[in-house]
């Protein structure tokens, strides 16, 4: 008879609130140019949301702002307007709206858009993120985990792999800030990451492992490309990780209950 409040838009707003430290740090450091860039991506993503609302009766979501923020921070800087509109539209439409909107998509629209831009314009200049933006990832992760919209297990899985790598003497990639931003903005998206407890540990661990591997063996690529590729492969593997976790859960349960 009574209704709680954790519906889709609440989660989207909580995610926005969690990401706020990263967004504000980035805007303060990069200045008005970044603000204009963010406005541009908000406009393109918002336009598609409104178009799909009018044409397909699909309610727009605040999650579109998360996509716009990720693209503003990570999309190549020297591309023309046309290329950016094309990439953003591909991500927002093909990865999110065509599936029925945020909550039904299987891949994060920003991940798809960035991968699309990376494949289409391999020679473009990728942005670097200032070190303070990387530090701002920590409060963002803490806020998200405290409100339960970012999985703490996923973050800990990634941290565990990093710790193992540090113990094994594997060198960390440079520009760690980029990997952190991609982790909280793209990999930890609750909709497209794994949903079981074990699956989330594996999800975070897989992202960190792929990122370390790409950084070690994929020469000539920019860290953004490495991180986005790792994020893309991880979210493609998320259903598989869930299946593994559920199969294991069922086996243990059968053994315990007979």
């Amino acid at each position: 008879m009574i209704r709680g409040l954790w519906d889709r838009e609440t989660v989207a707003l909580m995610l926005l609130a969690a990401i706020l430290p990263v967004a504000v740090t980035w805007l303060v450091i990069e200045g008005p140019w970044a603000l204009a860039r963010l406005g541009f991506f908000l406009l393109v993503a918002g336009l598609w949301h409104v178009l799909w609302m009018l044409a397909r009766a699909q309610p727009p979501s605040f999650a579109g702002a998360l996509t716009a923020l990720a693209l503003a921070m990570l999309a190549p800087e020297d591309l023309g307007i046309f290329a950016l509109v094309l990439g953003t539209s591909f991500g927002v439409v093909m990865a999110e709206l065509a599936f029925g909107g945020w909550g039904r998509n299987i891949l994060n629209p920003a991940t798809v858009a960035l991968a699309f831009l990376g494949f289409s314009f391999p020679a473009s200049g990728w942005p670097g993120l200032a070190i303070p933006v990387g530090w701002a990832v920590i409060p963002a992760a803490l806020i998200g985990a405290a409100f339960g919209v970012i999985s703490a297990r996923l973050l800990l899985g990634a941290l565990a792999v990093m710790a193992l790598a540090a113990l094994a003497g594997i060198p960390f990639p440079d520009k760690l800030a980029i990997y952190g931003v991609v982790l909280v903005l793209l990999v930890a998206d609750p909709v497209t990451s794994a949903t079981t407890a074990l699956g989330r540990w594996l999800n975070g661990a897989l992202y960190a492992a792929l990122a370390l591997m790409f950084a070690a063996y994929w020469t000539g690529a920019h860290p953004v490309q490495l991180a986005v590729s790792a994020a893309l492969l991880t979210s493609l593997a998320a259903p598989l990780l869930d299946e593994i976790a559920i199969a294991l859960w069922l086996t243990l349960r059968r053994r315990r209950l007979g």
Binding site: D7, V11, A57, P59, G103, G148, P190
Partner: peptide
């Protein structure tokens, strides 16, 4: 848009 999508949260 029914059924409304379920967003995983803690």
């Amino acid at each position: 848009s029914r059924p409304l999508p379920l967003i995983p949260s803690a």
